[in-house]
């Protein structure tokens, strides 16, 4: 992966409190969710990565250069803050135009990019209204628009779906995914895990100031060998299947759920998946489908931070 954004052994402390402790990570194109409980250091890491604060130790590099020292590199960065603070007396269009001008574009180009950014976040109809009159969701969208209008290589989104209605959430989630697919390096910070899951399967998990996990949710889940995996099977012969599974060494427990599925728990998911198909065929037990119930982000998160 080509490093667009890199943190090298970054630490940040405030007095005697260590908010981020010796974190290293490399991000390339695509969407990455930054996760963590309140007080875990997620916000501090996010601000370190986006150049808003300086590491006490280590360095954050954008394309190999320090963002805090070389402010010109902010041309490559779009930042959508969590804070609701905006220039309420401006119209959405005036605000965007100013933000684009301050990125160094001339008047005509700013106007063109302003229109495009308003369309991108589905706010073209309200471009000439004052921001002070915007709903919470519209305010989020105008913040998104100013982060994207100059077509940045790296986009930081801090709780981007806050206050949005379901339709807007879907639109913005889709937009974020598209940005990732278009080769942008997008870092999304959110405490609502299902939201992150709609945008990406790639996460960085921080807990108690330390980087706890980084990568694809499924890969992280698979790497957790000693944590039971829960698998649900649909079979025309559920009792026979349950009895078969109960007799296997890798299976910790079996039960039938309310939906008529056989639910098995195993503490060696990789071996379980490797051996099971052949064993089922050999035993002649029909299985219509099976699915892992706990490789969603919430389960992985709960497990990792609950350790």
């Amino acid at each position: 992966m080509s490093a667009v954004l890199e943190a090298r052994r970054v630490s940040k402390w405030f007095g005697e409190v260590i908010a981020v402790n010796d974190c290293s990570l490399t991000l390339g194109p695509g969407v990455t969710g930054l996760l963590g409980l309140n007080g875990a250091g997620k916000t501090t890491l996010f601000k370190l990565l986006s150049g808003l604060i300086t590491p006490s130790q280590g360095e954050v590099l954008v394309r190999g250069r320090r963002l805090r020292r070389e402010v010109g590199m902010f041309r490559r960065v779009g930042f959508c803050p969590e804070s609701d603070a905006l220039f309420d007396w401006l119209t959405g269009r005036e605000f965007l135009t100013l933000m684009i001008r301050l990125m160094g574009f001339d008047g005509a180009e700013s106007a063109r990019r302003c229109d495009r950014a308003l369309e991108l976040v589905h706010l073209a109809h309200a471009g000439d209204a004052r921001i002070g009159g915007y709903s919470k969701g519209m305010r989020q969208k105008i913040k998104m628009a100013q982060a994207l209008a100059h077509d940045p290589e790296i986009v930081f989104l801090d709780e981007p779906l806050n206050g949005m209605d379901p339709v807007s959430r879907r639109e913005i989630s889709h937009l974020v995914k598209e940005l990732g697919e278009a080769g942008r390096c997008v870092v999304v910070s959110s405490h609502i895990l299902p939201e992150i899951e709609t945008m990406t399967r790639s996460i960085v998990l921080i807990h108690r100031g330390k980087l706890m996990a980084e990568g694809d949710i499924t890969e992280i889940r698979d790497a957790i060998h000693d944590h039971p995996t829960i698998v649900a099977f649909r079979s025309p012969e559920p009792r026979r299947l349950a009895s078969f599974l109960a007799g296997r060494d890798l299976v910790l427990g079996v039960e039938l759920d309310d939906l008529g599925r056989v639910v098995a728990r195993t503490d060696h998911a990789v071996n379980f998946y490797r051996e099971l198909p052949a064993a089922l065929i050999e035993a002649g037990i029909p299985v219509d489908e099976f699915q892992t119930l706990d490789d969603d982000l919430q389960s992985v998160f709960d497990y990792l931070v609950g350790q």
């Binding site: 902010f74 041309r75 220039f87 933000m99 301050l102």
Partner: peptide, 8 residues
């Protein structure tokens, strides 16, 4: 923050 995150 809107000034901060510009090349200014």
């Amino acid at each position: 923050i809107y000034y901060w995150t510009r090349p200014l």
